[in-house]
Design a binder for these strands. Structure first.
Lengths: 217, 217
DNA sequence: ACTAAATTAAAACATCTGTTTGAAATGTAC
DNA sequence: GTACATTTCAAACAGATGTTTTAATTTAGT
């Protein structure tokens, strides 16, 4: 047998591609099984439901990424030196780019999926994520708080969600943005380039001085 | 006749509420007509199709907002003084808040719809917007370029889309964020408060210094 | 090789979707 | 009040969706 990819993997590979480019709601199981060259019933047999398939697709990346991030966060927390915000944010770069080893174009795939996950489905993915990786997230928030000691916790909360919006939206519409950039500016930016553009933008926004005008109105 | 709201308005009112909280794809015509207490066929009779209904819902706000913004942008462009970025971004505040006159909770509704529009549907809303209001958008980009003369056009392109992501995502998940903020920080932030928090964050991100590390990697 | 479990396959299921139809009701003008 | 156009309504339509069922097939253990 030349190609030993199992049915489950064929489904996951096809699903992540379609999910990333069309979103979860707008991708049908028939599209997936057709692209995977697999019987329709195989999805429900192997994964139970479409919802669980979505989680499995994300889990394939999260199970690699999150432990790596957790380790990096812990390491940074242990070192007593004052970490600046850019350093904290830059922690994401290497683990994200290493997703390319998990899968061809893994980084781009995962980030697009993340974008879709936060906009398409309303509740169950957010719950899934917080339930499994809430601890890791807490460490990150702590690092940001240490890097921005002048910001109240509520302000950090808002600004981190603002930043999440930037990342998620940019990745969800990544394809369209890359096409425009290529057409208008003759730029061919890989996902790595986008990440390197994002970091200083996010760092500046999160660390922007906290004035009274931010709250009074 | 006590209530003279026409069938079309009843549909638009119900539709915008459901669209804002559940997205376009996850809202069915039957939900809309049921909430509007109107016959199912009325949507296709009055609006033609669901797609056109979506556009009509947005148009009710855009037709008020965009001319006002265009006027403000033109005014700022005409004045020869150097406009700083915060001033340019602050132009949005008043016109946005005045959408509350168009409709109860109009500002929140519109911004949530905008968020949904950019994430849910893939192409046709973006086209619709650019086609109708592209000129106004160009003026805004020009103002930003004047305020950030050191940034190359391509960098401004990326940062403005980063910012769009922040706004759109924040507004799409506005309800969830407000609930968390209320529970964790005893904060009760109206949409106006969120806008005032957004401006400095966005201004800092867009105007962050352009270094070689942004492009080299 | 035989048996039992795991997997694949085709078909049907039940439900939901946006849209269309054709007749009833309502409003409007002369 | 009659004729006409507009609007409402219940019903059906055609298609797509996720899921289930039942039988055939393949795989693995002994």
């Amino acid at each position: 047998m030349v190609n030993k990819t199992t049915t489950q993997d064929k489904i996951l590979d096809a699903a992540e591609q379609l999910f990333a480019s069309s979103g979860f709601a707008d991708t049908s199981l028939r599209q997936i099984t057709s692209m995977a060259q697999v019987n329709l019933a195989a999805v429900n047999y192997h994964f139970g439901s479409k919802k669980e398939l979505i989680q499995s697709v994300l889990q394939r990346y999260l199970s690699v990424l999150m432990p790596r991030l957790d380790q990096e966060f812990s390491h940074l927390l242990a070192s007593q030196k004052q970490n600046d915000l850019t350093a904290v944010l830059s922690v994401f770069i290497k683990p994200l780019l290493e997703l390319n080893k998990v899968q061809h174009h893994g980084t781009r795939m995962f980030l697009q999926l993340l974008g879709r996950g936060y906009t398409d489905v309303q509740g169950h993915l957010r719950w899934f994520f917080n339930h499994h990786y809430g601890r890791t997230l807490d460490k990150f928030v702590l690092l940001v708080q240490q890097a921005c000691p002048d910001l109240p916790a509520s302000e950090i909360f808002w600004r981190l969600h603002f930043s999440l919006g930037t990342v998620v939206f940019t990745m969800a519409s990544n394809q369209a943005l890359q096409e425009i950039a290529a057409a208008d500016f003759n730029e061919n930016v890989e996902i790595e380039g986008v990440i390197h553009r994002l970091i200083p933008y996010l760092a500046a926004g999160i660390a922007s001085p906290f004035t009274l005008s931010s709250q009074a109105h």
